[in-house]
Design a protein around this nucleic acid. Structure first.
Lengths: 232, 232
DNA sequence: TTATTAATTGTCGTTTTGACAATTAATAAT
DNA sequence: ATTATTAATTGTCAAAACGACAATTAATAA
């Protein structure tokens, strides 16, 4: 009856830009393909959307498979669907960016892929339109992180203000005054100061903080102003 | 060689939430389907993505066909892809929201569809997950409009501050002090005051303004703070 | 001429911002 | 033990932004 069947059918995939932070620099997780086409080339973590799963399900499945992690911060970015973006067959890909605590990551044994962390500013060329995806993801991460408290997702449970500070500078690619930053971030009320100090970075040591989960969830949609003189 | 062919294939569509403003209220454009399934039910403007077009192309094509308009403000929202969202066959849909000047709209003769404007707060139930799409689009419109100067897209070339004011209140579903709003919106530097006045709404008349195109383009990504006490 | 109405400009205390300085808490060197 | 050193933390302050609220203005209608 209806024309559905006459319409062309396509493959639908997901690709994840996985961001991590090693304490100094922003990194992304890439995989070396063990399959044709583009065998041995670096690419984003991705996979086809199965018959019984949503794109979100697929992204979570792929992430679990490649990082061993579940319930990570995952945000849909946009769809990539130019005809010809995949040389084999027309494929739509839903781009996601993920934020993970790099220390929780554990390499998964996998015959098809070989995963590796790269500095965001020193990464290999990627297949297809994956380079564009990374650029878009970075832009969106910067945008979102300027307004919402999401960067905690890349830090361990316990973290210090200086750690946060470096992360913010790294993501926004700018210098931020430590004194003003400290005041701003604590004034959000999202942090709980712990008794313990991290002495690895300095003689004085920096107090550990943890997230106030309740407030974090309640404020996840709130607008903040974490970046001075912000212009996107 | 590669497994692509063994993967399931799907339909990919676009659906557009078309927003307009009649001077008093926010409206959306809906169509009555003349096709099975869900014949005679109201739905969003949409269509399948053709073999040689991107989702953006498809959205523009569909909009042109249903409104007669080209080059309208169009923004990708998210993909809808739950299995079973379409009862006939698995279909992914890329949701877009569009902002148009309602007065430029002209009904298109179309055998398959019948289009009509509805008040955003008094609209019929829609097919499939289209109700969710409208809710999402409204939320995103509100979010975006709070930070970026996009609502001009729904007004004529010449507009008055009071018109803008009503539109902002309508989109954000809140009362905004006229005096502070006027000061804020003019201080963005995006408006050029014209000599002419609009006398239809009051005795004193309100000055017409037009957009400073150059500054508008340059600032389209700038953060503004147009809504007082903003909490999303 | 006056009343009316909505647009526009003005006032002002409070809060936020961001540039910059001073202090503090630890360890390492003397 | 004392001092130097270093990074974390707290402090200062002037300028700008914010938002609650009042007064004035420009037109038409009575």
């Amino acid at each position: 009856m209806i024309e559905y069947s006459r319409q062309p059918h396509y493959l639908v995939a997901v690709d994840c830009i996985v961001f991590g932070f090693d304490g100094e620099h922003l990194k992304i997780l890439l995989v070396k393909r063990g399959l044709e086409p583009e065998i041995n080339k670096w690419s984003l973590i991705g996979g086809f959307v199965g018959a019984d799963e949503s794109p979100d399900d697929a992204a979570n499945r792929v992430l679990k498979k490649m990082t061993g992690l579940e319930g990570v911060y995952l945000e849909q970015m946009q769809i990539y669907g130019d005809p010809g973006r995949d040389p084999i067959e027309r494929t739509f890909s839903v781009g996601y960016f993920a934020l993970i605590d790099i220390h929780k990551y554990q390499a998964q044994l996998n015959d098809d892929y070989e995963a590796e962390w790269f500095l965001i500013n020193d990464r290999p060329k990627l297949i297809f339109d994956h380079n564009q995806m990374v650029a878009d993801a970075r832009k969106k991460l910067r945008y979102k992180a300027a307004l919402h408290p999401i960067l905690f997702e890349m830090l361990p449970k316990k973290f210090t203000i200086p750690q946060l500070h470096i992360l913010f500078e790294e993501v926004n690619d700018t210098k931020i005054d430590t004194r003003n930053f400290s005041r701003k971030i604590t004034s959000t009320g999202l942090l709980i100061k712990l008794a313990e100090k991290d002495k690895t970075g300095s003689k004085k040591g920096a107090f550990y903080f943890k997230l106030d989960k309740k407030k974090y969830i309640a404020n996840s949609q709130a607008f903040l102003n974490l970046i001075p003189n912000l212009r996107v």
